[in-house]
C-alpha cells in the first residue's frame, strides 16, 4: 500500500497519466467516439459524466485496450495504447504485450464481475498469483490486508453470491488494487447498488483519492464529483462538450446540453 501514497496532487507533473488526441471508435458504421481530446494528470480524480450512450464506457475500455481505437492517439503514462511506433508506422502489440500493460491499470465495473467460483480473498489474489507469479502465501496475506482496508476482512471466505452488492464492489476494488496499478478506471461503480450501499463504495474511493491514486471515474454521483473530483468532462454523442473544474462546471455549466443533462441528474 505504501506505493499508493504519492506527492500531493498539485504537482503539475510533466507527463500526463492519460492523454487522448482525436480518439475515434466505431462499431461497424456506427461512430461512437468522434474525436476525444483530453488529459488526465498524475494523482488526479478525473470524472466523466454524460447521458447514456454518449460513449463513456467505450472510452474507458479504450484506455486499457479492451477496445481497439480506429483513429487518433491514446497514451497511458507516456506509452501508446495498443501500438508501438516505429518511424512513422504503427505496429500492433501482441496479446502478451497488451496484457503486460493492463497490469498497471485497474478496472472496476458497474456489475462488479467478481469471479463467482472463488471466495473474496481468492478473487483478490488470483491475478497476483497467476499473472505476477507471486508466492501464494504472500499474495494471500497481502490480499487479506487489502480486504481489511476496504472493510471486509471478516468476509474473506465468502463467495460473491454470499455478499451484498456494496461488499462485492469493495472486493472488486481490492482485486484491482492487488495488481498495484498506477491508474484506476471506474465505470459507474455505484449504479447497480441500492442507495444505502452507495456510500460505502464511495468512501473507499475517497480514501484512494486521498492517497493520491490517479482515477478516472464514470459516474452519476455529482456529489462525489464535486467533492472529490479534480477535473470533470461532460460527454455527449461521442464528443467532449465541456470540461473544467467540477465545482465550476456543475454550478455554472456553459453549454445548453450540459445544463439540460445536469437538470435531470442533480
Amino acid at each position: 500500500m505504501t506505493d499508493l501514497t504519492k506527492t500531493p496532487r498539485d504537482a503539475a507533473s510533466a507527463e500526463p497519466m492519460v492523454k487522448a488526441e482525436g480518439v475515434h471508435k466505431s462499431y461497424g458504421l456506427v461512430e461512437v467516439l468522434k474525436g476525444i481530446d483530453l488529459e488526465v494528470r498524475q494523482s488526479e480524480v478525473f470524472c466523466l459524466v454524460g447521458p447514456s450512450g454518449s460513449g463513456k464506457s467505450t472510452f474507458l475500455r479504450c484506455i486499457n485496450h479492451l477496445e481497439k481505437i480506429n483513429g487518433g492517439r491514446l497514451w497511458v503514462d507516456g506509452e501508446l495504447v495498443g501500438y508501438r511506433q516505429k518511424g512513422d508506422r504503427l505496429h500492433e502489440l501482441k496479446d502478451r504485450e497488451v496484457a503486460l500493460k493492463r497490469r498497471d491499470i485497474g478496472m472496476v465495473f458497474q456489475r462488479f464481475n467478481l469471479f463467482p467460483h472463488m471466495t473474496a480473498v481468492e478473487n483478490v489474489m488470483e491475478a497476483p498469483v497467476q499473472v505476477k507469479r507471486e508466492n501464494k502465501a504472500a499474495a494471500r496475506e497481502r490480499s487479506m490486508a487489502l480486504l481489511e482496508r476496504v472493510g471486509l476482512a471478516d468476509k474473506a471466505g465468502n463467495y460473491p453470491s454470499q455478499l451484498s452488492g456494496g461488499q462485492q464492489q469493495r472486493v472488486a476494488i481490492a482485486r484491482a488494487l492487488a495488481m498495484k496499478p498506477k491508474l484506476m478506471l471506474f465505470d459507474e461503480p455505484t449504479s447497480a447498488l441500492d442507495p444505502e450501499l452507495v456510500g460505502e463504495v464511495l468512501d473507499v474511493m475517497r480514501g484512494l483519492a486521498e492517497e493520491g491514486m490517479t482515477m478516472i471515474v464514470v459516474t452519476h454521483e455529482m456529489g462525489f464529483a464535486r467533492e472529490v473530483g479534480d477535473a470533470l468532462v461532460f460527454m455527449d454523442g461521442g464528443v467532449v462538450v465541456e470540461s473544467g473544474n467540477p465545482r465550476e462546471v456543475l454550478t455554472n455549466p456553459q453549454h445548453a446540453r450540459t445544463r439540460a443533462f445536469l437538470s435531470k441528474v442533480l
Binding site: 479492451l66 464481475n113 484491482a176
Partner: peptide, 19 residues
C-alpha cells in the same frame, strides 16, 4: 464480463480460459 474482468487484470487468454 468474466473474460473482460480477467483481461483487465492482465491475465492472458489461456489463463483466463483455464482459471
Amino acid at each position: 464480463g468474466q473474460t473482460e474482468a480477467a483481461h483487465a487484470l492482465g491475465m492472458s487468454r489461456t489463463a483466463t480460459l483455464r482459471r
